[in-house]
């Protein structure tokens, strides 16, 4: 085979066995084909690199990778405004994954948030090629979990301060457990539950040690597929067009795939013996009130004066 003119790296947030990664790898394959082998992009799962997920944008800026996925959720310590569309129970009503995706998409496009995102991207010399979502975050447990009162005294693994204070409000104990130890911790009852999406429960085989899922569609975590502007500019125009076109297509494929896969995963989990309970509309509103009064204020404090305006804009966007 002839050596490629452009050998690039793509750092993804998920292992190659995951459907997201498969779609990306297929897209990279199409790029290689359409470019006549001139552009060859290698997909690497970020955990196989020396880097952490939160560093992926910095890697773009430093020229250490040409394309990467980036999760705003991983950067909210540094950019608190970007947490707004992903605050727990940000949507006014419980909704399906598909509807939620559209609504939260609009929230990301609300003026202040969109401007903050543009600034972050510009600072890193990055361009967004795709925006898509993981399956909605929900509660999972090895104990019964069917109503709000069941959360009392459950030890649940959390990964953000917002989830932590939410759990405390519910009378549970938030726990801090490294990702690799979650399975064993569930198995030995160091923790009772986790907050995550249906796809991750299946992918990490946590369903082997979980018995209940409580579906309230707490929040939608988003990802961006990001390319280095500098790297892109080095390509001749025809190749630029191929890369942008194919990767944009991958982003759209993933966006369309997530809601379907969420339903399929929930069905699968139910079939494998996990009791799935849909939160009632009333319970959702209870959760939302709790989040609004007890969880959001800490975020507002970090953001400062703009916080209320941002929330107003997001409310409007979601309601459309």
């Amino acid at each position: 085979a002839q050596a490629a003119d452009y050998r690039w790296q793509f750092f993804g947030m998920l292992p190659t066995t995951h459907e997201f990664s498969k779609k990306i790898v297929a897209g990279l394959e199409r790029i290689k084909e359409r470019s006549g082998g001139r552009v060859e992009i290698q997909y690497s799962y970020i955990a196989e690199t020396p880097y952490k997920p939160a560093e992926s944008l910095t890697l773009i800026r430093d020229g250490l990778v040409q394309i990467t996925e980036w999760l705003p959720a991983n950067g909210v310590g540094t950019y608190p405004i970007l947490a707004a569309p992903e605050l727990p129970f940000v949507a006014a009503h419980k909704d399906t994954a598909a509807n939620l995706q559209v609504a939260v998409g609009r929230a990301w496009d609300s003026p202040i948030v969109a401007e903050a995102m543009d600034t972050v991207m510009a600072d890193h010399g990055a361009r967004v090629l795709g925006r898509y979502f993981y399956q909605p975050m929900n509660f999972w447990s090895s104990k019964p979990l069917a109503k709000v009162a069941d959360f009392k005294d459950q030890r649940v693994r959390v990964i953000t301060p917002e989830q932590g204070s939410l759990l405390e409000q519910l009378g549970g104990t938030p726990m801090n457990i490294p990702n690799t130890e979650v399975y064993t911790s569930l198995q030995t009852n160091v923790i009772d539950g986790v907050i995550t999406g249906s796809g991750n429960v299946k992918g990490s085989k946590w369903n082997e040690v979980l018995t209940a899922g409580y579906i309230a569609n707490i929040t939608l975590i988003s990802a961006r597929m990001v390319i280095s502007k500098e790297a892109l500019a080095e390509l001749p125009d025809d190749l630029q067009a191929i890369v942008v076109e194919e990767l944009t297509k991958v982003g759209e494929e993933i966006l369309a795939w997530t809601p379907e896969s969420d339903q399929a995963a929930l069905d699968d989990l139910a079939a494998s013996g996990v009791t799935i309970t849909q939160a009632s509309d009333e319970d959702y509103l209870k959760f939302r009130e709790m989040a609004k009064t007890k969880v959001w204020p800490a975020w507002k404090e970090r953001v400062g004066a703009q916080a209320d305006t941002i929330l107003l804009q997001i409310d409007e966007a979601l309601a459309k």
């Binding site: 310590g77 301060p161 801090n176």
Partner: peptide, 8 residues
């Protein structure tokens, strides 16, 4: 830059 974890 802040940590990715809970305490940020």
């Amino acid at each position: 830059i802040r940590t990715q974890g809970i305490l940020r």
